[in-house]
Nucleic acid binder design. Structure first.
Lengths: 144, 144
DNA sequence: TTTAGTGCAAAGAATTTGCAAGGTG
DNA sequence: CACCTTGCAAATTCTTTGCACTAAA
């Protein structure tokens, strides 16, 4: 089982949440995802682990995970948003708007300092930068 | 009239878009906004300049402005997203999730370099960091 | 056993689309 | 005058909610 999923489960359990089958399914899906997912995609993947899970539960679980700091939401394009698992420490998520792959980039110490000095506090440890990854750029160039 | 609004209008005009009353109203609203706005808020403000404007037109104009690079979307909380006018050069937007005020922070040269080296290209010049601004933090502390 | 959590279906928001009428270049 | 753009309203899509039932702890 995914190490990160285990961490999240332990933490939620300690916080008093019940580790139900649907919740575990969603947590595992999020923890294993290599790219950001829409709520509907989370549902599809979660159903492979627990076929009875419903969309409302996915939404409720996602909301809970976000509240507890295990999840980030990124708006991509015009409709909906996508989700990804939050990791520790301030860092950037380079989100490709074509393939939705997420690449990480650690934040420099100076940025952390400047942020702190500005008095602004972010509860998110990930900062999203939306754009196009190197691979999709090559693909795009090849198409012409 | 707002200088930024003028720039946007000129650029759109040069690109072959018609500068209609509703479009001008939306552009002026966005260019003058001190905080990010939801589409419905944009509609309300735009109606003060052109009372006949409809919500669908606001959506269509926002989409166009985003496509042309004059607008950024940020997801805040669970529902909807907010909008803000994009400025020039890579920089951060510190978006307060309480009052939606946007504060700017220039990006360090090293970040720009590291981003470039990663091969990732962002068409956005603004990077959003969602959190709580210093003022709202004080307000929050005072409430207790 | 207790009660948080669930699935379902219906309600409520947000966003997009079709089309006849209108206004810009 | 041509045709891009609009307003309206309907359609679609996304998200939340109410409630009887289920299953963690």
């Amino acid at each position: 089982m995914n190490k990160r999923a285990l961490e999240i489960k332990k933490s939620l359990s300690a916080a008093g949440y019940r580790l139900t089958r649907p919740r575990q399914a969603v947590i595992e899906v999020i923890a294993c995802a290599r790219r950001s997912l829409s709520p509907a995609e989370v549902l599809n993947r979660a159903r492979k682990r627990d076929p009875r899970i419903g969309l409302a539960t996915v939404y409720r679980t996602l909301e809970m995970l976000q509240r507890e700091g295990f999840l980030d939401r990124v708006g991509i394009g015009s409709q909906g948003y996508v989700l990804m698992c939050t990791e520790q420490g301030l860092h950037f998520h380079l989100v490709c708007e074509r393939c939705r792959t997420v690449t990480e980039l650690r934040a420099s110490r100076s940025l952390v300092h400047r942020l702190r000095r500005s008095g602004f506090i972010s509860h998110r440890s990930a900062i999203e930068i939306v754009g196009i990854c190197a691979r999709c750029q090559r693909k795009c160039a090849a198409e012409r």
